[in-house]
């Protein structure tokens, strides 16, 4: 029983992290239909910039967070404006931006190593350890869940009550109709690339505080974000959240009685099952 409670707690904490990644990746994917693999290496950049400011230079953590978010947003917008948008304008098949994104990922990952050096990086932070009955968690875990909830609330308000938020929902539903009613879809694309990248930087800082940063952390991040979105249903932000939590819970509770030898396979198994049973994901939007 003790184990189940701990695993449940772990599942919620990690689920929050994956859900945040799913939201970031999903926002970009649903709105622009671009499979932005470089999301992962931008995530890594966000982590290293935050490390540089708060770890290396010793500035307070919120400054590291701000720096990471700003750099990530800049890189996200730059990848749209500099790479994907020109390809879009030429009317190429969707496969081309995907390949371009892979190339961008490699470039950015190597850049991180060149600029910040390779090798694990950590940020010293005062963390406290807490109990919930027999289960343990740290203050970073709490932050992961809290920041996810905060992001959810803000995103909800943004999407439902602001003009650009509604524009995002429109584009997610039908990009051409969005153009028809007068939405400048290029501007909205820039917005979601900025937002999605900002979310990845928040997740990246928390992971750096929790586990440390490494030059290849981005791959796991974009993979989990991608799986969360596919499992939850493309185009649905609620789906991305559900997908993320499903992944987090399966990775922990799913291994309750199964050997942890299967951990890396579990995410793939969930993905395959989803594709087989519900190809449109948990919350699929009605598509024309």
């Amino acid at each position: 029983m003790d184990l189940v409670i701990q695993l449940l707690l772990n599942g919620i904490v990690n689920g929050s992290h994956y859900a945040l990644l799913g939201l970031g990746f999903g926002l970009i994917f649903a709105t622009t239909r671009i499979v932005h693999f470089a999301f992962g290496s931008i995530f890594t950049f966000g982590a290293y910039v935050a490390w540089f400011v708060s770890g290396y230079m010793g500035a307070p953590i919120f400054l590291g967070l701000a720096a990471g978010v700003v750099v990530a947003m800049g890189l996200g917008v730059a990848s749209y404006v500099g790479l994907y948008q020109p390809l879009e304008r030429r009317g190429v098949s969707p496969l081309i931006p995907l390949i371009a994104s892979l190339g961008l990922t490699i470039v950015l990952e190597n850049l991180v190593g060149i600029i910040f050096g390779t090798g694990a990086r950590t940020i010293d932070a005062e963390t406290s350890i807490h109990f919930l009955g027999p289960a343990f968690f740290t203050s970073i875990h709490v932050w992961q869940v809290v920041s996810f909830l905060l992001v959810c609330v803000l995103l909800y308000l943004f999407v439902n009550y602001t003009r650009y938020g509604k524009a995002i929902m429109a584009m997610t539903d039908d990009p051409e109709m969005a153009r028809v009613i007068g939405i400048d879809t290029a501007r909205v694309s820039i917005l979601v690339f900025a937002l999605g990248s900002a979310l990845s930087a928040i997740a990246a800082l928390l992971v750096t505080l929790k586990d440390g940063a490494s030059t290849h952390m981005g791959f796991t991040a974009v993979f989990m974000g991608f799986v969360a979105v596919i499992v939850g249903g493309v185009g649905s932000l609620r789906g991305a959240i559900a997908g993320g939590f499903l992944l987090g819970l399966v990775e922990s509770l799913g291994l309750w009685k199964i050997s942890t030898e299967w951990q890396s396979s579990i995410a793939f198994i969930v993905l395959f099952l989803m594709i087989l049973l519900r190809p449109h994901g948990l919350f699929s939007l009605a598509r024309r």
Partner: peptide
């Protein structure tokens, strides 16, 4: 049918007046 299928009638009309 130039509409947004997953949104409500009201939301659709409001989006029509987006500009």
């Amino acid at each position: 049918h130039g509409i947004f299928p997953s949104l409500t009638v009201r939301d659709n009309l409001e989006l029509g007046g987006f500009v």
